[in-house]
């Protein structure tokens, strides 16, 4: 079982989460101005990297927060987690923390 560190709830089994999608895709900020190619890229084009990949998961059976997850697709290892807007690649080795977040197994 993959275990994911929810920024609020700590380490939980992946069965509490729902996979949402590729976190590297940004919804066009100004929908009317985005080109057809940009929409096509946002909706359809997905890399299938071997190794670390940023994903969005929802802690759907827990606090319902959306979580950004840096996961190694080869080993299933979760390398870092944070809130959707966090940058996990900026030197993050451990889970990102929010002000009131606490990590750990306890809860």
């Amino acid at each position: 079982m993959i275990r994911i560190n929810c920024p609020y709830c700590g380490l939980r089994g992946h069965d509490e989460f729902s996979y949402i999608g590729d976190a590297t895709k940004q919804r066009p900020a100004s929908p009317a101005d985005a080109t057809a190619a940009e929409w096509h890229d946002f909706v359809y084009i997905r890399d299938n990297p071997r190794g670390p990949h940023q994903e969005i998961w929802q802690h759907i059976q827990g606090c319902r927060a959306f979580v950004r997850v840096l996961r190694n697709t080869l080993t299933h290892e979760v390398l870092a987690t944070g809130l959707p807007q966090d940058d996990l690649l900026a030197g993050a080795s451990g889970p990102a923390k929010t002000e009131e977040a606490k990590t750990g197994e306890a809860s």
Partner: peptide, 12 residues
């Protein structure tokens, strides 16, 4: 030791 009074959690 891990889940003490005053803790709550949502799970399945």
């Amino acid at each position: 030791r891990a889940f003490t009074p005053g803790m709550c959690a949502q799970t399945t």
